[in-house]
Each structure stands twice: as structure tokens, then as C-alpha cells.
Amino acid sequence: MTATMNRPLGEPGASRPKPVHVSKTINLTLKVWRQKGPKDTGRFETYKAEGISEDMSFLEMLDVINERLLAENKEPITFDHDCREGICGSCSLMINGIPHGPETATATCQLHMRKFHDGQEVVVEPFRATSFPIVKDLMVDRSAFDRIVEAGGYITVFPGSAPDANLIPVPKPVADAAFIAAACIGCGACVAACPNGAANLFTAAKIGHMNLLPQGQAERYARTEAMVDTMEKFFGSCTNHGECQEACPKEISIDYIALMNKDYLRSKLKNRRYLSRKP
């Protein structure tokens, strides 16, 4: 840590425990993708990450690197992050080629440095997919996901018009299955992991959540078609590699893709009278 970070602090009050605990530290070599903007070609830059505490999260490690870069008058690394609790879906990063890094079921913000070893080289890149254009450094534009949801990822209900909540019983296994799909945080790891840059797992999770529930039946098929068609406008096609479910920090299963495909097919059959018409 640079000297600037160790200025004497205000007199600590009794309420703040003073850190005396010293955690184990490791030294890493980082290769970080730096790109000034969408038009820049971008390149890897190498940084020494020394004295990194094992108790840090990966993003806290990047905070420390950024403080050091600033001290050397170099622009800090831009990356998306916010809640740092694994739920907002802001953070991303390919860490040694794996979306969100080596730990399963873990978003980058919850990945801790104790999962790395001393002397390791760590390559940090943005999520790579044509439909996620790079904004700057490690920050990408994932707004294509919003277009998919806008196309049909909702159940129409105007405030005030809903019946009493317990008038719609939902069998527990159904509610649980819907919930598992609804746990998707929209981070885009599935797209980044897919060799085709497909967004089928994201879309299937959104569709599965609503299509399973009794409340979602009225718009089930219109929703499925609209969302799948929008997805195909932006993203590649699924060829069942299954990389998406491996990368998913919420461990959403590709079974939901099967469910989506089934509903899509069923919708086409139901609406086959439209098949020959131009949109």
C-alpha cells in the first residue's frame, strides 16, 4: 500500500473496533484488459498485485490496484459493480477465462482472494460477446437483456385490480421451481460462457419463472414467442453446450431452456395460422 493511504486517522471512538488482526497475504500478477472506449482496440496491461489479503473479495483487490494506479497518475480500471452481495448482477469479468472466476455458484463480488495462490497469474477480461459491446475497460453494455424482458417478460396486472393473494393457490413445488428461475440476476455470465454468445439461459429463466405460475398462463404463449424472437435478434443460437449453467452464479439449470423450447414449439403450433404471414 502506498504511503498516501496510511495518513493518521481521526481519533477512533470506542464504538469502532480497531483492526489488529493480520490476515495472510499473497502476491499476484494481473493481466487486465484496458480499452479506452468502444473505438479503441484495447490491450492487456500487466500489474503487480502485491500484499493482497486473502480476506479481500476480488473487487476489493481491484479497488486496491486502482488506488495504487491513481497514486502513479494512471487512470483506474473501470468495472461495473454495486451491491457486492451477489444479487444486483452488476459485476461481471472473465477471470482466467471463466465468467465470475473459478468458484462455482459465485459472482465476482463474492469471490475471495483465498481462492487464489501466491505467485498466480490472473487474467482479467470483460465479458466477451458481440451483443455485449465493451464500453470501457472491463465494463460492457448488457442492455440487450432489457429488450428481451420488455418484449414480454411480465404479467399484465394493473395496481388495484388484483384478487386477494390467497385466491391464487400455487402448489409449493411449482412456486419453488418458478422461484429458482426467478433468482436469475441478469449478469450475463451465461452469454459470456456460451461459445455462440447465446442468451437462451437468461431468456429461459425469465420465461420459466412466469410460464410455470398460474398467474402467467394468460400471456404464456405470446410471452414466449415475443421474448424468444427478440432474443434471436440480438444473440447467437443455442447448440446445447451447457456452458451457461456451469457459469451461472445462481446455478440455473438448462432444463429451463427445454421448457422454453417446448413452449415456443407449442406456441408455433397453436398459432400456425400466422406462420405464412409476414410480420
Binding site: A162, A165, I168, P169, V170, A175, A178, H209, Q215, G216
Partner: peptide, 12 residues
Amino acid sequence: DQCVAQGVPFAR
């Protein structure tokens, strides 16, 4: 009522 109708998967 509103949230259940719009598909919020509350525990059951």
C-alpha cells in the same frame, strides 16, 4: 395482492 398477481414467487 398486486405482487402475487404479477408473479412474485413468495414462499408457500
